[in-house]
Design a protein around this nucleic acid. Sequence first.
DNA 1: CATATTCATCGCAATATTACGATAAATATT
DNA 2: AATATTTATCGTAATATTGCGATGAATATG
Lengths: 112, 112
Amino acid sequence: MNMGISKTSNYTARQLELAKIAKALSHPARIAIVQFLLKKKTCYCGDIVSELPIVQSTVSQHLKELKAAGLIKGTIAGTSTCYCIDEKNWKSSQQLIAALFDKIPAVKSTCC
Amino acid sequence: MNMGISKTSNYTARQLELAKIAKALSHPARIAIVQFLLKKKTCYCGDIVSELPIVQSTVSQHLKELKAAGLIKGTIAGTSTCYCIDEKNWKSSQQLIAALFDKIPAVKSTCC
DNA sequence: CATATTCATCGCAATATTACGATAAATATT
DNA sequence: AATATTTATCGTAATATTGCGATGAATATG
């Protein structure tokens, strides 16, 4: 049907950005990857592969998505690629998300 | 192929929970919905429908997903349903996410 | 130069997501 | 009781995601 109509313009830039970040983190493998990168500071794709229960090509795909969302960076180093958290974007993402979650109402809801 | 193997057990409960929250927020419509609920405190499905560029059945589906993830609650009130943020789960989600984002390394990465 | 290593990409299959319209279910209104 | 209102669910179509193996591309090593 017409499911594919991405009504992108109907949402604010902030909403789209938040959804993009959330989507990047919406798979446990990608959560595991960023946690690993946060712990290790930098590492190669192979290090992640040996850490996760999925094969190399799938890990590479997940890395691509995290990179597309801006959460991580990758630089080629010889035959391998060194990945790390994109600290600048990580911080701005942190703030965007924090701003959303901070808006919890002081007043209790009347119905639920 | 064998794509559907959900290797759930290979990830920690925390990783799975984080991914679940992120997934619930991975669509701009659902971001818009929670923002609306945060602002309005409580409201009916119809209020959300008239706020968003999508039809009622789709909004209902998004609400179902947010509810399944535990981020919102809904109570039936006559013919309509009153939705609101699940404050308890909202706060615990906030903490889980904050804990992830707080782990930004003090040391700069050497490669990227 | 030949081979090895490492990662990205392609091709494909299975499943999930998203959207809509139609309809059901439940309560409210006349 | 009949009709209206409101939301949930069903059915279906289009597209996206996830996974794997195979292969390509690039640099490193022998």
